[in-house]
Amino acid sequence: MSHALERRYRRLLRAYPEHYRAEHGEELIGTLMEAARPGAQRPPLRETAHLLAGGFTARVRAARAPGVPPWADGLHLGAVVVAVATFAQFPVLPYVNYPAWTVLGIVLMVALVRGWTRVAAPVAAVAAVWTSWPIVWGGFYVPVVNLGPLYGDLAPVAPYWVVAVVSVVLAVRRAGADRTAGRVRWWGATMPARSSRWLLVPLAGWALQLTQVPTYEPTWVVSRAGVEVAALLLVLAATLTARDGRWALAAAVHLLPGLVYLAENLLVTSARGFLYWGVVTALVVASLVAARRVHAKA
């Protein structure tokens, strides 16, 4: 096997989790031996596709939270995505206009990523109620404390309410499970922890704010839409390969605040806007339909 071919296949094999390589090492070595046949100059497309598909499937299945119902895991992942995406867009740099709100957002995101739903639930509830204050009080009363932003529209507060509702549902579900098992824990992880890499999302968003590039610039808008569509395509693939609906549910939770925004701005949405929302909605619906069919066949 040429050195270039060996390096290429080693990169492909790293896509597999360590435990999968240990269990299926002979099969993977056989694929490499086949690729090393005389005259082979590059990895055959079939073997390459097999390795990539197998690695993706293995990683998706390994990412499932053990001992947690798919609906709870999907809701949790969706809340994490909504929280990190919302606070990544919140103006923090170069000037911290709401230091207390920034700290609250960091606490909320860390609590969600670590699985501390009983910590995340009250923090998210405070964030949801605070941002909705002008809606609740009709603008007649403005708090003296400058904790964070106040919105008079539904679209900006929708992400906070989605995170709050999901956090409360997960906290109550886990509390009931603990009582059934004879133990009650009011501190610590009540859901399996997510990867700490999720916290890089708000950090990247805040770092981009230093460039002073407006979020409505075409390049920024198209790039963000491309990333979102690619992520939803991966959700659809994960739903089909892992035969599990939690990814589709997480995508639906992520889409919900966006649909509130679309409904509130329906009359001023451009043709490109409708195209974008149509594509992302179609991908989420396709994932939900695939999840339902997979569940029906199980």
Rank of each mutant, 00 (worst) to 15 (best):
H3G: 13
E6G: 11
R7F: 06
L12V: 06
R14S: 00
P17W: 04
E18W: 10
R21F: 08
E23M: 13
E26Q: 15
L28V: 06
L28A: 03
G30A: 13
T31R: 02
M33D: 12
R37N: 09
A40V: 01
P44D: 09
P44F: 12
R46I: 09
A49P: 10
T57N: 12
A58P: 10
A58Y: 02
V60L: 04
P66W: 05
P66C: 09
G67D: 11
P69G: 10
A72F: 10
L75I: 15
L77D: 00
V80L: 04
V82T: 05
V84P: 03
V84Y: 08
T86K: 00
A88R: 07
F90W: 12
L93Q: 13
L93Y: 13
Y95E: 15
V96G: 13
P99Q: 07
W101R: 03
T102C: 07
V107S: 06
V107I: 01
L108K: 00
M109E: 08
L112D: 05
L112G: 08
W116L: 10
R118F: 03
V119D: 02
V126W: 13
A127T: 00
A127E: 02
A127C: 05
A127F: 06
V129L: 15
I135A: 00
N146Q: 14
N146L: 05
P149N: 12
L150H: 01
D153F: 12
L154M: 13
A155Q: 07
P156R: 11
V163S: 07
V166Q: 02
V168L: 13
A171N: 12
V184S: 15
R185L: 14
W187F: 09
T190L: 03
T190N: 03
L199S: 01
W206R: 03
L208E: 11
L210S: 10
T211W: 04
T211F: 08
T211M: 09
Q212V: 12
P214H: 03
T215S: 10
V221A: 10
V221N: 04
S223E: 00
V229P: 04
A231I: 05
A238R: 11
T239C: 06
T241P: 01
R246F: 05
W247Q: 04
L249V: 09
A251N: 01
V253W: 06
V253M: 03
H254E: 01
H254W: 06
L256P: 02
G258K: 07
L259M: 12
E264I: 10
L266C: 05
V268M: 15
A271C: 08
F274T: 08
W277S: 07
A282N: 03
S287M: 05
R293A: 03
V294A: 12
V294C: 09
A296P: 00
A296M: 06
